Amino acid sequence: MGYVDSHTHVWFKETLPKEFFSNNSGYNYVPPKIDEIIKEMDSANIDYIVIIAYPSREIWRTKEDFPINTINFVKPHANRFSVIGGIEPNRITLHEAKEWLEKQYESGVSGFKLHPVHSHVKPNAYREEEGGLKQLELLYQFAQDHDLPVVIHTGTSMFIGSRNKYADPIYIDDVSVDFPKLKIIMAHMGRPNYVSTAFQIVRIRRNIYAEISSIPPKKLLEYIPRLEEISYKTIYGSDYGGPGVKGIAENLREFLSINITEQAKENIASKNPKTMYRPLSELI
């Protein structure tokens, strides 16, 4: 059984804009070498990792070409990587949103990411009472029509420029109701402030899935004591590349040592992510 790390920020120097290295986020990221990442994956029996290559003008200076640049760079190792794209719906026109979604889809993304806290947009901002943002509605509709998941960040962010009033997962409930066939991945399960809300929404909404990246594995059962109850729809991720995450291999080893059944571990770290995300080799 090989594993999947379904949430990483393994960003390579060759794919990042020059402005990234002068950003004021408060976090100095050192890009890894691709051969080093693959070697670490091999040591931990990780079949492939999911790279979250989302646009964030405010925090990272990245735009909608970032996932395409990432795909082009990792193509020689297409069976070891899966790439998540996305748009900043409140920063581009409706026409631009349509163009970028189509370009990213044709390039081989395995899903899209929305980061409300970094993009300063509520996940339900497409609704008329929340502003009627048509670009966001298009993102959800496009993903639903093409059977691609949408990863939505929940929980606070420490980076300068983040606005944590958008961190509450309750707004995702609207998305679940309005797009019932859309697969919604609730990244980080609302940690630390909103875990109870996130857990309840995952339990009651058929199309919302839990994703546990950035929660230290040793603390995971403190955050989510009933994790095993939702293991059939929970997805493992490390958030490697983010602050405090020690490494892809070490984070996985710590997760595999927690006190849940082996079946639950297999579901969370292998079966479920493989069902949700396809490697690039199957998409190009």
Rank of each mutant, 00 (worst) to 15 (best):
V74Q: 10
V74A: 12
V74M: 11
P76A: 10
H77T: 01
N79K: 15
F81K: 01
F81I: 06
F81G: 02
F81T: 02
F81P: 01
S82Y: 09
S82D: 02
I84C: 06
I84P: 07
I84Q: 09
E88L: 02
E88M: 14
E88C: 07
E88G: 12
P89E: 08
N90K: 09
N90L: 11
N90M: 10
N90P: 08
T93E: 08
T93M: 10
L94M: 08
H95G: 11
H95K: 15
E96K: 11
E96S: 13
E96A: 12
K98T: 13
W100S: 03
K103A: 15
K103C: 11
Q104C: 11
Q104W: 05
Y105W: 14
Y105K: 06
S107L: 03
V109Q: 01
V109G: 00
V109I: 15
V109T: 10
S110R: 08
S110A: 15
S110V: 08
S110T: 15
G111C: 08
K113D: 08
K113I: 03
L114Q: 04
H115R: 09
V117Q: 05
H118C: 07
S119W: 02
H120R: 12
H120T: 03
H120W: 15
K122V: 01
P123C: 13
P123A: 15
P123N: 09
N124P: 01
A125Y: 03
Y126S: 00
R127V: 01
E128Q: 11
E128L: 14
E130T: 00
E130D: 11
G131V: 02
G131F: 03
G131D: 07
G132V: 05
L133D: 02
L136W: 03
L136Y: 01
E137K: 13
E137R: 08
L139N: 09
Q141A: 15
Q141G: 05
A143E: 05
A143C: 04
D145E: 15
D145H: 04
D147G: 04
D147E: 13
D147S: 15
L148G: 08
L148A: 04
V150L: 01
V151P: 01
I152V: 15
H153K: 10
H153D: 07
T154L: 00
T156E: 12
T156Y: 10
T156A: 11
S157N: 14
S157V: 11
M158F: 13
F159I: 09
F159A: 05
F159Q: 12
I160V: 14
I160L: 12
I160M: 08
G161H: 02
S162Y: 07
R163I: 09
N164E: 08
N164F: 09
Y166R: 05
A167Y: 00
A167R: 10
A167P: 11
D168V: 03
P169I: 01
P169H: 06
P169Y: 06
P169T: 04
P169E: 06
I170S: 14
I170P: 04
I170W: 07
I170K: 13
Y171A: 14
Y171H: 13
I172W: 04
I172S: 03
D174S: 15
D174L: 04
V175L: 11
S176H: 03
S176Y: 02
V177C: 07
D178A: 04
K181R: 14
L182S: 05
L182H: 00
K183M: 13
I184Q: 01
I185F: 08
